[in-house]
Every structure is written in C-alpha cells, then in structure tokens.
Nucleic acid binder design. Structure first.
Lengths: 208, 208
DNA sequence: GCGTATTTCAAACACTCGTTTAAATTATTT
DNA sequence: AAATAATTTAAACGAGTGTTTGAAATACGC
C-alpha cells in the first residue's frame, strides 16, 4: 500500500463530513478530496456511498451494542434471581451510559455521536433504515426490560415513550452540530452533563 | 387566471411532498408535475424553492403562534395577579394544545404536522433556520414562563430540557411518516392520544 | 526479476437539479 | 377594440451528483 490505508482515511473523513453536513449534503468528491484519495476509491473499496455509511455504522455500533446487550442481560438476570423488578433508571442507563464510555474512549468518536443523532431523524428513509437495522435488536430488548420495570404500563405505551426518548436523544447527540435550538442558551455544558440531564429527563418521563 | 390559482395548488402540493419525502428529496419537477402546473411557475410565484418552503411555514405558523402567545400571556397575567407561580403543565400545554386544535381545524394540516416534525431536526441548516426563525420568539417566551414555573432551576437547565422536549415532539409529529422506530409496536393510536402521552412525558421530564 | 494481482488514477457517462430565458398566451385596463 | 400587464409555456443552461471504465502504477508471491 502506498499511504497509511486509503480505506481507513475514507472511513475517518466520511464519518466527520457525514456528521457535520449530513449524508446527502456530502458528496463523494468532498470526501475524497479532503481525504487526499482518488474519487473512484470509495466505489472500489466500499461499493457505493450507502455501503460506506453502513461501514461507518458497523465500526462503532458493533462494540457499542455488545456492551449494551451484556449490561441489559445482567440486569435481567439479577432481576430474575432476586425476584424483584428491575428499576427504570437502571434499565435506561444500560442504554445511555455505554454511549458516554464510547465518547471517552476515543476523541474522534465525537463525530460519530453527531452522526447517530442525525441518523435517528434523517428525512431520508434509506439513511434511517441503514441505522435502525443495526440497533433494532437492542431496542426490542430495551422495550422488554422496560415492560418488566413498568408492569402496569402497556407495551405500546412503553414503546411510544421510548420513541419520545430517542427523539430527545437525537437532539442531544447533535449538540454542537445543529447547535441548541435556543441560541444563546444552554451552551456551556459538557456533553457529559447534557447526557446526564437527558437521562434524568427520560427516566422521569418513563416513570411518570 | 386560468385554473383555480396556480399559486395555491403549488403550496398545497409542495406541503404534502415536503412532508412525506423531505425538502431536499422533493424536486420542483415532482411538485409541478403533481400539481399540474408548469415547472417555471414556482420561481415565478415564489422566487425560489426556499421561499416556497418559507411561504408554507408562514401560512400555518402565523396563526398558530398567535394563539400560543395569547395563551401564554394569559397564563403569565393570571400568575402575576394571583401572586402564585404558573404550573409546568399549564405552561407546556399553551404550546402543545394549539397544535391539536390546528390539526382538527383542517384535515390537510396533517401534512404540515409532519413537515414541522421534519424541520425540527433536518440535517440541512437552511431548512432548520427557515423554520426556527419563525418560532424563536414563542420558544423564548416559553422558556421565560417555564423558568417562572421552576424557580429553583437554572435557565440553561430549563432550555436544555425544552430542547429534549422538542426532540421528542419531532419524533411524534413525524408519526406515520417516519413510522415508529419500533416496527410493529405503537401503531394503533390516534395522533390525539400520542400527543397526550407526549405532553405527560415532557411535563414529568421538566418537573423531575 | 518476472508475472500476477491489487490498487490508483484521470476521464467520461448518464442523470438530476434549481433557475433563467424569451416567446406565446391569457387577463385587465383604457 | 386596442394596448398594456400578468401569467404560462417549452426549452435550454450550467453546475453537481454517484458510478463506471480502462489504462497506469504499485505491491506481492515465486
């Protein structure tokens, strides 16, 4: 190979540009120019622009979901053994806290955080599907656990509240990307603080 | 004029297509073909594609925001007079309930509902700005009132929670558009029921 | 060092897009 | 009815898109 891996450079650059400008507003020419590789390299290494996005998702979402599922299974096992219901907060943190861990493990994942936020509510069904098919299993498991934690609520009701929560997450994850909707406000908080506030918000909403 | 108002036909058709397919995935050719008017009519009557979107926003957002502001001012006046703080739920409903009223006033506004949901989290800053500049004043007033209702919370904290709420609303408003994230679940609810659940969700999150 | 396979490269392809133009048509005014 | 203004129309413009191609360059096995 000539340079330190053309494929890796494309992945890194595309992740950043997709996060900042969005999938459809980022052309392959912008990516390849910024990465310093040839235009045709994307189609050669990834097949298509869509597959490139899929590869970016896979890179981070695989490990992340593994951690989430392990934590949720642990919570479920503990609940089974003790005979008590799992707590709503305990369950939800299985989902939100690994995100924080990911963000701290590698500075470059900040872009991935934004990309996920975008993908949750992208107008294009292709982008949403590409993302959702990689988290569907985790979400189903999450609903299962939440139903255990909230036995008096219907599954539909729990699913809808999770939908609300994902919307709130989307707004959070794109932080410093979209920028807060309310201009001057709410700027001087770290992503950690914001995610903590978010977690409290959705826990109360779920329980309420 | 030849037909029952070319301009009106464009507005109606564009509103529907922007809501369903998103602003950038809807070409002027799709709009004009479906509306049965000439391609150049959009630029003639509205100047540009962006201005067309702005005109769609103006049409519904003007009346809607007027109602919201009046309700909020009434709540503020009552609080002043009685010397008591307004309730969080009371304040938030000033914002959410007029949406319901709009949806019931005219069946065709269902598309506008989706369009607003999209615009709240569109990857393109142009679309977001176009929308946000028309609701900024209402949102600022809403933060003011929420701060009155929650005097022990910082303004930043309130603004962030409103940001979370708007994310949750976005997911709700695109309902039957994006489709629920969780496939088979959460489908057989009317938009009224869902908005009621949403309101309860964000009230608890705000208070918590 | 040679031959094979992999990777890079510039160029072109086939579209789609929003916008503009200038002529033809329709409405309105005088 | 003639003249002016407003609207509609078909066609083209220029720029941008993802993808494909076939030749050049590089890397690797023997």
């Amino acid at each position: 190979m000539s340079e330190p891996d053309t494929k890796a450079k494309i992945l890194k650059t595309a992740e950043e540009l997709f996060a900042i400008d969005g999938f459809h507003h980022t052309s392959l020419r912008k990516i390849t120019t910024k990465a310093g590789v040839n235009l045709a390299a994307v189609n050669y290494h990834f097949g298509s622009k869509e597959s490139l996005l899929g590869a970016i998702f896979d890179r981070h979402l695989g490990p992340l979901n593994e951690i989430r599922i392990k934590r949720m299974e642990a919570v479920a096992a503990l609940a089974e053994k003790s005979g008590e219901r799992p707590g709503v907060e305990e369950v939800l943190r299985c989902f939100t806290e690994p995100t924080l861990a990911l963000l701290h493990s590698d500075a470059s994942t900040g872009y991935f955080r934004m990309l996920v936020g975008r993908s949750l509510s992208d107008p294009d069904p292709t982008v949403r599907q590409l993302f959702l098919q990689r988290v569907r299993d985790v979400l189903e498991l999450l609903v299962d656990l939440l139903c255990q934690a909230l036995p008096h609520r219907s599954r539909e009701s729990v699913a809808w509240k999770l939908q609300f929560s994902l919307g709130a997450m989307s707004q959070t994850l794109t932080f410093q990307n979209h920028g807060p909707i309310l201009g001057s406000l709410a700027k001087d908080k770290s992503i950690d603080d914001v995610i903590e506030m978010l977690t409290e918000f959705i826990v109360k909403g779920m329980e309420g």
